[in-house]
Amino acid sequence: MTDILIITHIDYCTPGHLAKVLDDAQLSFTELRADLNQLEGYDLDRPKAVAIMGGPMSVNDPLPWLQVEINALKHFISRDIPLLGHCLGGQLLAKALGAQVSKMAYTESGWQAMDVVAGAEQSPWLAHLPDDFDIFQWHGDTFALPEGAQPLLSNRWCANQAFSWGDKILALQGHPEMTAELVRQWLHDWSHLLDASQPSQQSCEVMLDKLDDKVGALNQVAEGFYRHWLSQAPELYARLNGLS
C-alpha cells in the first residue's frame, strides 16, 4: 500500500494526467476499482491523500458498492485528509457531504469555458488559473452545494462546476485529468451517445480540433489543482519533483 489512493470506477476512466504527474514526481500511488469491490478490506486510515475519478454511473444508482465508497469517503472526510473528485468523483464527494446529486435536462460535453464564481477569486485552489480556460466535460448529472461549501467555478450549462469544502476538499464536475489518448478513446467508443445538434454538446470534430494544444492547456490547469491538493499533505508535498 502507498500513501496516495486513487479510486476508479471503470476501465476507461483512468487517472490520466494525474498518474503522469505523480509518476514524474516519483510519488507512488495505489489504484483501486470501487466497482470491483476493491475498497473492501482496504485500510481507510492508511492514505494521506485521495483522488476519486469519473465513471458512467450515477451516484443515485442502486449499486451496493457505491454506498461502500460513499461510506469510505465519509471516513476520509472525518480524517481531514486532502480529497479531490473528478466528475463522478466530485458528485460522490457532494453526496458524502450531504448534498443532492440530480440529473440535468441535457448532457454537457466537450471543451467548455469556465467562469470563476464571484467571491472565489482568492481561493488557493484557483490561484494558478489563467483568465480564460476550458475544462473537458462529459456529464448528465450535477451536484448541489453541500452546507458549508464554497462555490468556485460555474458556466452557462452547469451552475455548480466546482466547490471546495474546508481547506482540503475539491470537487470538480469536469475532467481535468484528460489526455489526448483518453479524449480519442472516449470519442471512438462513445460518440454515439452524443448529439452535436444540442448546444451543450460539441461535435467530435470540434473536440478533436487542435487537440494537443487543448490538452496542453488543460494539463496546466490540472497540475495547479493537483499541486494544491498535495500541498495539503505536507509529507507528500515535500517529496514533489518539478511541481513546486
Rank of each mutant, 00 (worst) to 15 (best):
Phe76Ile: 04
Phe76Met: 10
Phe76Pro: 12
Phe76Glu: 06
Arg79His: 10
Asp80Tyr: 09
Asp80Cys: 10
Ile81Gly: 09
Leu83Val: 08
Leu84Tyr: 03
Gly85Arg: 04
His86Asn: 06
Gly89Arg: 03
Gly90Ile: 15
Gly90Tyr: 15
Gln91Val: 04
Gln91Pro: 10
Ala96Leu: 13
Leu97Cys: 14
Leu97Trp: 00
Gly98Gln: 03
Gly98Cys: 05
Ala99Trp: 07
Ala99Cys: 06
Ala99Tyr: 00
Ser102Asp: 05
Met104Tyr: 07
Ala105Glu: 09
Thr107Lys: 11
Glu108Trp: 04
Gly110Trp: 11
Trp111Thr: 11
Gln112Arg: 08
Gln112Asn: 15
Ala113Asn: 08
Met114Lys: 00
Met114Arg: 08
Asp115Gly: 09
Val116Met: 13
Val116Phe: 07
Val117Ser: 02
Val117Arg: 00
Gly119Ala: 05
Gln122Trp: 09
Trp125Val: 00
Leu126Ser: 05
Leu126Asn: 06
Ala127Cys: 10
Leu129Ile: 10
Pro130Arg: 12
Pro130Met: 11
Asp131Gly: 14
Asp131Val: 15
Asp132Thr: 04
Asp134Phe: 05
Asp134Cys: 06
Asp134Val: 12
Trp138Ile: 01
Gly140Val: 04
Gly140Thr: 09
Asp141Asn: 14
Thr142Val: 15
Phe143Ile: 02
Leu145Pro: 01
Leu145Trp: 06
Leu145Ser: 07
Pro146His: 00
Glu147Leu: 00
Glu147Pro: 01
Ala149Phe: 03
Ala149Arg: 08
Ala149Ser: 07
Gln150Asn: 04
Gln150Lys: 00
Gln150Val: 15
Leu152Ile: 04
Leu152Phe: 05
Arg156Lys: 13
Arg156Asn: 14
Arg156His: 08
Trp157Asn: 13
Cys158Gln: 01
Cys158His: 08
Ala159Trp: 10
Asn160Cys: 12
Asn160Gln: 14
Gln161Asn: 08
Gln161Ala: 11
Ala162Lys: 15
Ser164Ala: 10
Trp165Ala: 07
Trp165Thr: 06
Gly166Gln: 15
Lys168Arg: 10
Lys168Glu: 13
Lys168Leu: 13
Ile169Trp: 02
Ile169Met: 02
Leu172Asp: 07
Leu172Ala: 06
Leu172Gln: 03
Leu172Met: 14
Gln173Asn: 01
Gly174Thr: 07
His175Ala: 06
Pro176Arg: 06
Pro176Gln: 03
Met178Tyr: 06
Met178Thr: 13
Met178Gln: 13
Thr179Cys: 04
Ala180Ile: 13
Ala180Lys: 07
Glu181Arg: 06
Leu182Phe: 03
Gln185Met: 12
Leu187Trp: 09
His188Lys: 10
Ser191Tyr: 13
Ser191Asn: 14
His192Ala: 10
Leu194Ala: 11
Ser197Phe: 07
Gln198Tyr: 08
Pro199Ser: 09
Pro199Ile: 02
Ser200Ala: 15
Ser200Gln: 14
Gln201Ile: 05
Ser203Phe: 00
Ser203Thr: 03
Glu205Tyr: 02
Leu208Ala: 02
Asp209Pro: 05
Lys210His: 14
Lys210Ser: 15
Leu211Pro: 02
Asp212Trp: 11
Asp212Lys: 09
Lys214Leu: 07
Lys214Arg: 09
Gly216Glu: 13
